[in-house]
Design a protein around this nucleic acid. Sequence first.
DNA 1: TCTGGGGTCCTAGGACCC
DNA 2: TCTGGGGTCCTAGGACCC
Length: 439
Amino acid sequence: MPLFALIDCNNFFASCERVFNPRLNGKPVVVLSNNDGCIVARSNEAKALGIPMGAPYFQWRRLIEEHGVHVFSSNFALYGDMSRRVMDVLASFLPEECFEVYSVDEAFMNLDCLLRGDDYAANKEKILSFAEEVRRTVRQWTGIPVSIGIAPTKTLAKAANRMAKKNASANSIFACLDEATADTMLATMPVGDVWGVGRKLSEAYRAHSITTALDLKNAPEEWVRKRATVVGWRTQRELRGISCVRLESTNEHQHSILHSRSFRHAVTSLDQLHEAVASFTGRAAEKLRRLGLVCACVSVSVRTNRFSSADYFSNGGEAILPFPTDSTIDLVNAASMLVDRIAQEGQGYKKASVTLCELTPRNRVQTDIFSQPDTRHESIMHIMDTLNKRFGKDALHLAASGSSITGSRAGSHAWQGATDERSHRYTTHWGELKVVRAV
DNA sequence: TCTGGGGTCCTAGGACCC
DNA sequence: TCTGGGGTCCTAGGACCC
């Protein structure tokens, strides 16, 4: 029987900023999404001011300024690197097959690797002290605070993690090892907070007087299965302590790569739309090569402002490639033809996205007797990646991506974003290292 | 004025087969 | 007037996650 621990970084992006700027401790901090559009991370002090997750920045700006909240544009170079460090520390505690990186700031462990089927409830002290060691080590080695929830299923471990965060006396660790503890925990949890119950489902549940996680656990099984399909049924069984969601192996490759951006200003020129899509395709292709994958299809979609209902326009298209590739040149050509097909003149575009799909590992590509693996662009792509790694993003890029994408933080085209409040990339760029001065 | 980005999984329903 | 039954595969779109 598995026993899951969910390790979750507290207010992750805000905590990353604090590691390199300790003056922010105890102060309200928020981190914004791309283009400084939405609030995507909040320190506890910012949460206490009532600032919700995902809220548009402009709607909260006044309150943020009134309370002197510290505001940061997102700095994914920093957060990505900090995430890798945290995951490296966590991974060092267990064999690989007992560890799963679940998201940028969360990981699951299967503690059964340590306990080997022992009676978990009888080993509570041992489990808690292990968790405490994990928590302390991550904090000491990376500066990031984490909370840990422990339970026999992933869904219950998620709920236990929530308890660890909410309940200050729990010391950021909460273990739910028996049914009585689980029921007490679930009784105080709104059904919408259960992992896997989103907006739609929680509306449907509440309409049937299922308001807490405990209500869902005790609801008639056939009804749940009918209303919420096998997904909801699985969630219910997980709440009952029956593990239905396994630890995912980490060596499976992903199924799609998407790069999308909202534009700072509406783009009306099709030439500029082409540039933006070419640039996004280039980003996606870089990631594709970094992961050692090739793709067999590209899809592109574009849309105008979704918040102004009048004349909203969106369109998308997909192209199947003649053979799987990781060449930016081939992918940009395909994406560009799609733009010609889907875009209309005279629209003010606010967002474009490029998806690479049908991914396979480069070294496992199937060919038929009439075609050879495509290697035409192999060396130019290798040179491009090498130069860009050494001299910085976009040092070498296709002309199709536009001529002014290098260097500055905010480009000169309408489609390029601005990140006015980005902190330094302390851990990945030599020029932005933290400077320590002798007093 | 200003409203994010990157993923996965599941289902319904159509197309097609015998 | 009356028009079967059983199966697979694929895709678009919805819902969910962080």
